[in-house]
């Protein structure tokens, strides 16, 4: 190792080098007087610094402690050991899934309407009723299954169709980006109502000075 190890000397002096690095530095120091002198100068400086009087005339610990305790606020909230609140993370996911479901219904419905009105779907599924019928979904199921769905299922299918129309009326004017923004605002409003601002930044009163 012929190159000087000046850059390593501080860490070497402080015992901060890994064993392999330390061995390299020691091997170099054994044969380089310039680096030995450099190290000696650094050690002298550290010794000098640490030789500053440590026996400061401190306020006695009992008095200092009493002064601190007098200034402490009456009571702070103990650490709560409650499990993490998953709702803030789950809600956007639920909203997104709900939005996706409604979109899928809407797209599927439009696709069915198109298929029925153009005739090719009616050709494939003769039992399907014409476009615009309130029981399009019922007709589709009947065509696919060869029989009318169970009576209990009919209101559900009817509701799906109504929901799609409602969506078409109220949200159809918005673009899909607008729907996402709407859901996001809804989420923000929820968060603000649920979590009033309580900053709990611990110790770093000024990050810019030390960073």
């Amino acid at each position: 190792m012929n190159e000087h190890v000046t850059a390593w000397l501080d860490a070497y002096q402080d015992g901060e080098l890994r064993p392999s690095q330390r061995r390299k530095v020691e091997a170099h120091l054994a044969e380089c007087s310039a680096c030995r002198e450099e190290l000696a100068a650094r050690q002298a400086l550290s010794a000098w610094l640490r030789d500053l009087p440590a026996d400061l005339p401190l306020t006695p610990s009992e008095r200092f402690t009493a002064q601190v305790m007098l200034r402490l606020p009456a009571r702070r909230t103990p650490v709560a050991s409650t499990p993490p609140n998953l709702l803030p993370w789950a809600l956007p996911l639920i909203l997104l899934l709900a939005w996706g479901l409604l979109q899928a219904i809407s797209i599927l419905n439009a696709w069915l309407q198109l298929g029925v009105s153009s005739g090719w779907l009616s050709h494939l599924l003769p039992g399907l009723r014409p476009a615009g019928s309130n029981s399009l979904w019922v007709g589709l199921l009947s065509a696919l299954g060869g029989a009318a769905p169970a009576p209990g299922l009919q209101p559900v299918l009817h509701w799906l169709l109504q929901a799609d129309r409602w969506l078409g009326d109220w949200l159809g004017v918005l673009t899909w980006q607008g729907r996402i923004i709407f859901l996001y605002w809804l989420w923000l409003a929820f968060c603000l109502l649920r979590h009033p601002r309580t900053p709990s930044v611990p110790s770093k009163t000024n990050g810019t000075l030390l960073a």
Partner: peptide
């Protein structure tokens, strides 16, 4: 030294206030 003791007091009070973190 005086400033150091003042700052130390402030530090302990801040530590108390932020113990939960």
């Amino acid at each position: 030294l005086q400033l150091a003791e003042d700052a130390a007091q402030e530090a302990f009070i801040k530590a108390w206030l932020n113990l939960n973190t």
